Every structure is written in C-alpha cells, then in structure tokens.
Computed example of a mutant assay.
Amino acid sequence: MSESTSASLSDPLKRIVELPGVSEAVEETRTIVDRLLGHRILRRRSSDVSMESSLRGACASAALEGAEVSMEEIRAGHVYDTRIKGALRASGELGTLVETWPKAPRQALARLHTLAAADAVSEEALGRPRLEGERVEDPLGLGPAPGPEVARARLEGLYGLLGARSSVPALVTSSLVHGDLMAIRPFGWGDGLVARAAERLTLVERGLDPKSLVPSELGHQTLKDEYVPALRGYMSGTPEGVAGWVVYCCRAVLAGAQDSLATCEALKRG
C-alpha cells in the first residue's frame, strides 16, 4: 500500500483535498488571508477590525435569509428584524465557543441556534434538533429537508468530523460544516444563520483566522448568485459537486478577507 493510499484511508477527508481545483483554491485563499493577518494596522487596531468584520458578517448573513438592513442602521442600533438580531447575537459570541467547538460540538451548535433563534421560536425549540411535523423554513429554496431521524444521524456524523483532528486544511473542514448544516437544516428555523456562523467558527478554531477578522458570511453575500447552485452541487454528493462547493467557499472566504483588507486600509488612512 502506498503512503498516499494509506493517508487517504486514515483520513478520508484527504480525498476531498485531492479533487480538481480544491488545493489551488485553498492556497489562493490562504495567501490573501495571510496578507490580511500581516497587515501593519492590526498591531494597534486588531479589535476594531474584528468588530467591524463581526458586524458586516452578521448583516450579510441576515441578508441571505431575506432580511433587509443597512450597516448604518445596525451601527445606530435600529435593529428589529429577528433574523438580524439573531445573526448579531451569534456573531458576537463566536469567540466564547472556540474552545467548545472541537470538544463538544453538539453543545456549541445548540448554543449557536439558541442565539440565532431566541426571538423566533418557542423556548423549548431553542437549541434542539427539530421534531417530526415541525416546519422547516427554506429561504434559499433548496427544497425538502431530510426527516428528523435522518437529520439526527447526519448530525452525529458531523460531530464526529469536528471531533477528529484531521490534517486537512481549515478551509475544507469549514466548507463541509457549512454544506452539511445547510443540507441537514437540523433546527427548522435559522439554519442558514447557524451554518454560516459555524463555518466562521471553524475557520477561527482551526487556526486559519485566529482573530476572527474574515467576514466569510459577507463573501457568501458577495457571491450570492453562486451560493444556491454551489449548495445544490454539494447536496448532490458527486465529486464534482463537492469540489465545486469547496472551491466556492474558498472564494467566499477570499472575498471576506479582501473586505477586511479594505477596512485595514481605511483605518490606516485615518
């Protein structure tokens, strides 16, 4: 057995890295993120960039759910839509979940949903997977979600993925987290908010973006015309669909990093 074959068997996710276009997209995105992390303004204003990124990411994630709000309204505190409030809460607490995410992903995911859906669902529905007969919101028009039992089984597989310390790039793992949560839609309301927050949390926890400077959610909004087609490709389960989704997610993270680079330059100019 060759060394590469042995590695693929011991770490099945390596096969995704080997799909056409994936490693190139990962390297291109990592280069831009590294450029952001090395920006001189971060020596003094890292927290400012992180805060701006958090706000812009939350605004973008809510917009993908169909909420309409401007950054000016958010800065002024004029936030009334439950989707926007949920996105802001989830984004604002990501830092508190970094250590929990790899050790107790079930607990962290429940917390993300509780934050995202606090104003939208009943208290007993917060943080728990949906039950038979409960409605599944579908703002992106992805089609029917798997039944509750199937969703729970797939969640267990996702928890296993997060608990394993795979050697695959953070960008690949975060893409799979996002894609699986969108395919499963485990809670029925706010699944998109949770999935995009979980993607970003994975990028932070896995070390690509340790200071949470990259609004990956904003990247998805920037590429919104490609978002659903890429998700459908991932949900098809074909190698081409999975590769296309990972490459798309890399491009979304790259777009988010470029936005934060622009923030850094604006702060530098004063």
Score class of each variant (00 low, 15 high):
Ser122Thr: 14
Ser70Arg: 04
Leu131Pro: 02
Arg130Trp: 10
Glu123Cys: 07
Leu112Ser: 03
Gly77Thr: 15
His39Tyr: 02
Ser61His: 02
Gly38Leu: 14
Asp81Gln: 01
Leu37Glu: 07
Ala90Arg: 01
Val79Asp: 00
Leu88Val: 07
Arg56Pro: 00
Ala63Phe: 01
Pro146Ile: 06
Ser61Thr: 13
Ser50Lys: 11
Asp34Asn: 13
Glu68Met: 06
Arg56Phe: 11
Arg111His: 10
Gly147Pro: 05
Gly141Trp: 13
Arg45Glu: 11
Glu52Asp: 07
Glu72Cys: 05
Arg128Ser: 10
Pro102Glu: 02
Arg106Ser: 15
Ala87Lys: 01
Leu140Thr: 04
His39Gly: 03
His113Asp: 09
Leu115Ser: 04
Val136Ala: 11
Glu124Thr: 14
Ile84Gln: 00
Arg83Trp: 04
Glu72Val: 15
Gly57Phe: 09
Gly133Tyr: 07
Lys85Thr: 09
Gly66Ser: 03
His78Ser: 13
Ala108Gly: 06
Ile41Val: 15
Val79Tyr: 01
Glu93Ile: 11
Thr96Glu: 14
Leu109Met: 15
Ser122Val: 11
Ala58Glu: 02
Gly141Ile: 10
Leu37Trp: 10
Arg83Thr: 03
Gly143Ser: 08
Leu97Phe: 09
Val121Asp: 02
Val49Arg: 01
Arg40Met: 14
Ser50Gln: 15
Arg56Gln: 15
Pro139His: 08
Glu72Phe: 08
Glu65Phe: 03
Glu73Cys: 03
Ala87Tyr: 00
Ile32Gln: 04
Leu109Gln: 01
Pro144Ser: 09
Asp119Phe: 08
Thr114Cys: 14
